[in-house]
């Protein structure tokens, strides 16, 4: 769907050269939500602007839906941009226009006739859940509502790709989640390919299928979100993962040590959830099917687009052969990995 090769952007100012994006190569599949994460100054904002040439690349090429964006002339680029929606951190709405007129703006640009425009705007307002606020001005809306207008506006011309430039960074956590849910809906219902950049791992975890980690203009690590979560290789990636899991490893092992020390009977087991989607009610299934007692001691499970991810420390007590059967059930029927920490016989 989107193929980026050797993309590079060098800013020159007063004899100083700054390479914001450095020889970046990336492939994004149709219909996926692709996240790019990095700290500020990593070049991710420049990167996303290079995709629709709001920044002109210094070299390299970008192909979106078989069209080589980097080879287009100015007027061809304008037409191509109508197929690439974009939303922004600060929403960038026209304060002088009402909600409906803001959403109609890209349709005016594309030369859609008035009657059709009115219908399409109504459709979009319903889609993003802003019914009743058509005549409001942006200044009368909350941040979340403003971003909904931004999303409706970006979708107006039925684009194939949606670029999200820190779309939730100016929102509070609750509103962030609502906007992210809306993006997932759009991705599933309209089959839209979404590329988003962010500095919040939470955003990646919640909605992305694949992720690339950017540092100093380069992609240092990329892969399926779950894979990157479970096996982060680079230091910067590990820091981002810790952001979500809060898993300061040191902390956890200390707590675990305390558990092991005071552990008197049964089996102490750590369950590793690596994207389990089919058996989401694992604990209650165990309790129903096996005559064992289960005590949940510690854990942190987080939901990603590929299912639950995290660890759970539990204590099994009861008949040891039944415990064995329960463990076998987990190993055979689910993708959850079992690690026996301590076995007190």
């Amino acid at each position: 769907m989107i193929s980026i090769k050797g993309l590079r952007k060098v800013f020159t100012s007063e004899n100083k050269e700054l390479t914001a994006v450095d020889d970046l190569t990336l492939d994004i599949k149709e219909g996926e939500i692709f996240g790019v994460i990095g700290y500020s100054g990593a070049g991710k904002s420049t990167f996303i602007r290079l995709l629709n040439r709001l920044e002109e690349p210094s070299s390299g090429n970008v192909v979106i839906d078989k069209q080589e964006i980097t080879a287009l002339k100015a007027n061809e680029l304008r037409t191509a941009r109508q197929d690439i929606g974009m939303i922004f951190q600060h929403f960038n709405l026209l304060w002088s226009r009402t909600v409906e007129d803001n959403i109609a703006f890209p349709l005016e640009i594309a030369g859609v006739p008035k009657a059709e425009r009115v219908n399409r705007v109504q459709e979009l307002i319903r889609l993003v859940g802003l019914s009743g606020r058509e005549k409001a001005y942006p200044s009368q809306l909350s941040g979340g509502q403003k971003q909904r207008v931004g999303i409706a506006r970006a979708l107006a011309n039925n684009p194939k790709v949606l670029l999200c430039d820190e779309a939730t960074s100016a929102l509070d956590p609750e509103t962030t989640n609502a906007i992210l849910d809306l993006l997932v809906d759009i991705n599933q219902n309209l089959g839209l390919t979404i590329i988003l950049i962010t500095h919040e791992m939470h955003v990646i975890r919640k909605i992305c299928h694949r992720v690339a980690v950017m540092e100093q203009g380069k992609i240092v690590e990329q892969g399926d979100v779950l894979e990157v979560f479970t096996h982060p290789k680079e230091k910067v990636t590990k820091k981002f993962v810790a952001q979500v899991m809060g898993s300061d490893e040191h902390d956890q092992s200390e707590e675990l040590y305390y558990l092991i020390e005071n552990f008197k009977k049964g089996k102490l087991i750590r369950l590793h959830f690596l994207g389990e989607t089919t058996n989401q009610t694992l604990i209650s299934q165990l309790a129903k099917n096996f005559p064992v007692d289960i005590n949940i001691l510690q854990g942190k499970i987080t939901q990603t687009q590929a299912g639950g991810y995290g660890t759970l420390v539990i204590q099994f007590s009861g008949d040891s052969s039944e415990i064995e059967k329960a463990i076998q059930f987990i190993q055979k029927e689910t993708s959850v990995e079992v690690e026996v920490i301590k076995d007190a016989k």
Binding site: N52, L54, L77, R78, T79, A80, R81, Q82, I84, M86, F88, H90, N92, L93, L94, S96, R97, F105, P106, E108, I109, A110, R153, N157, L163
Partner: peptide, 23 residues
């Protein structure tokens, strides 16, 4: 940012002048 948004939608300079800058 608003001017940039208009660019991202494929607006011509004329559109940017009359529909963004002036209003």
């Amino acid at each position: 940012g608003v001017v940039e948004a208009a660019h991202s939608m494929g607006a011509k300079t004329r559109t940017i002048i009359f529909k963004v800058l002036l209003p």
